[in-house]
Each structure stands twice: as structure tokens, then as C-alpha cells.
Design a protein around this nucleic acid. Structure first.
Ligand SMILES: [Mn+2]
Ligand SMILES: [Mn+2]
Ligand SMILES: [Zn+2]
Ligand SMILES: [Zn+2]
Lengths: 152, 152
DNA sequence: GATTTATTTGCAACTGATTCTCAGTAATAA
DNA sequence: TTATTACTGAGAATCAGTTGCAAATAAATC
């Protein structure tokens, strides 16, 4: 029911931390991006709107958002950590094309109960599921067929 | 049918690369480890047996093993890439306890057909599935209940 | 098996994302 | 006001991973 600002404030309060102006701005920026992003991209967005926020503070705030359950890790890329906000964005499967880099997201629903069942039999209390599938998207798969050059 | 050395040699040959002594040693070490490992841990194992292999060569060889399909990425940890060999080690689910760090692996079989079906409906040619579940193992879950200190 | 050619290696220097240090600010409590 | 604690920006430090290079090695050709 609570919106993300409330959730963040509550989380911070519980930890004896403050919801400061930089943290507020970073939070807003995070929820204005509806794609995956890395720290520097996030920083770039913030800089263009307001100013006076440092990259260091972005790096310092991201772990707080993760712990507050507002943000999660997404697939790393080019040696950089990537993130995405979670609020109002239910768990999903990531389909990443290794050729064109396109990323598609689909529902996790069909897989979820199966995992819950496995977890129960293992006595494991699941908190976070990450399901990523790498391969070729429709477009790249057909292209690769044309270029029937070599390989296997 | 082919063993991993043969697979590696064939892969290298196809690329016009050579199966050298350092590469052979690294390959052996990789298949002597039956856990997840990072580049430095692998290097440590090799150094203790033979010598005269540099860390740089380990770093240069790992991508080759990945591309040859002999090794895959495992869950990153402490800011370091981790790996595991695949040969004779079918795809599996990783269950990682966020409290004690224990890692359990289980079969992917039950989930596999479901994903294949989804892939078909998306026209996505899946090549690699990564399913990791973070949470609390049986032990840590019960401990956390005792220490009913605070938190939600 | 000597010679040529292309690939590999160890080493050390480098890179770049992330973390840390520190001195100055802001918020809050007393 | 004063004391205490948390926060910030700036830049320095860290450190996993990469790269340039000259010497070594493997394979191909004579
Ligand atoms: Mn996503
Ligand atoms: Mn594994
Ligand atoms: Zn594609
Ligand atoms: Zn545990």
C-alpha cells in the first residue's frame, strides 16, 4: 500500500538513517527509469535534472535501496553492476539475446509454484528468485540461419 | 562421448589456436575442482601442483573454456567472477543462503520443460538457463526464529 | 631437423568500476 | 547554544581483470 518513498523512509528510520535530499532525488530517479540501469547511467539522469549530487552518493545509496527491497540486481553487463526498481514490477524472467543484446521480460508466474514446491521439499526459505535465459532472439536466430557460414 | 581434453582441443583447432602445456594444466585443474571457483583460487591450485603458470594466462584461458562450453559462470561473490566446470555436470538450480553462505545444488529437470515451452512461444532459441534462488537454508531459518529480535 | 610463421606466455604496467578517507555540513538531541 | 551523530562531495585508493611487449613455443614447410 505504501509508496516507494514511504517504504524507503521507514527502512531508513529503522536503521537510524535519514531520508535526505540527495537520497530522495536518487530514489525518484530510480523510479523514473523503467529499464535496467547502472550506477553511472543513474547518475547521468540525476545530473541532468538537478545538480550537486555526487557519483559517490549514488554508489552509497544503491545498497540501501537494495536492502530496502526497492531495487534488485539485474544482469551484469560489460563488467558493470546493473539494477532495476522492483516496486509495482513483479518478478520476471529475463531473456537476453547474446547476439543483439536485446532483453525481453516475461512473467515468472508459471515457474513460481514449481520453485515454491522445490523449496518446501528442501526446507529452504526462498526470498529471491533470479531466472535468466541467454540465447538468440527470433530476429538473430533467423539471421544466423542465413549466414550459414561455418560453426558446428 | 569425447572427454574434456578432446573437446577443448577440437574447439581450439577450429579457432586456429593451440593446445599448449599451460592450457592443458589449467583444463586439468578446472576439472579437478568440484566446486565453484574464481580465477585466483584456480591459480592457487595450479601453482601448488606445477609451477610456471601466470595468473594472466589463467585469466586468458577461462574465456576459452567458457566458449568451448566446458565451463560456465556461477554466482558472483565478493565482487569476483566465479566459475564451475560443466562436463558431466548437468544444469542445476543454485540455492544460496544469504546468512551462512551455504550453496546447495539441485536438478533443473522439473523446471526445464516449462522454460522450453515458454521459449517456444517467444520464438527464443534458449542456450543457457541460469536459475538462482537466494534465501535462508533450513539451519539459518530456524536460528533466525530463535533470535526473534526485531524485523517485520 | 632446420627454418619459417603464427600463436602464446610471463611479467609488469595499466584500466576502470567501486570503495574509502577526510574535512566540512546538516540534522537532531540535550 | 553546544554536543553528537549521520551525511556529503571530492578526490585518492583499491583491486579484479586486461593489455603491451619481448622472449618462448608450437605447428607448418622445406
Ligand atoms: Mn528486469
Ligand atoms: Mn553449480
Ligand atoms: Zn537478438
Ligand atoms: Zn544458511
Amino acid at each position: 500500500m505504501a509508496d516507494h518513498a514511504t517504504i524507503f523512509r521507514d527502512y531508513l528510520a529503522k536503521k537510524g538513517l535519514k531520508l535526505t535530499s540527495p537520497r530522495k532525488k536518487i530514489l525518484e530517479a530510480v523510479f523514473a527509469i523503467h529499464e535496467h540501469f547502472n550506477a553511472e547511467e543513474l547518475y547521468g539522469r540525476i545530473k541532468s535534472h538537478s545538480q550537486g549530487i555526487s557519483l559517490a552518493t549514488v554508489y552509497r545509496t544503491l545498497p540501501l535501496l537494495l536492502e530496502a527491497g526497492l531495487v534488485q540486481h539485474a544482469l551484469r553487463s560489460a563488467g558493470r553492476e546493473r539494477y532495476e526498481h522492483i516496486y509495482g514490477h513483479p518478478k520476471h524472467i529475463h531473456w537476453l539475446c547474446r547476439s543483439c543484446g536485446s532483453l525481453v521480460e516475461t512473467d515468472l508466474q508459471s515457474v513460481d509454484p514449481l520453485i515454491a514446491e522445490l523449496a518446501k521439499s528442501l526446507n529452504f526459505k526462498e526470498e529471491d528468485i533470479e531466472l535468466s535465459i541467454r540465447g538468440l532472439c527470433w530476429k538473430c536466430a533467423s539471421t544466423e540461419n542465413e549466414n550459414q557460414t561455418d560453426e558446428r
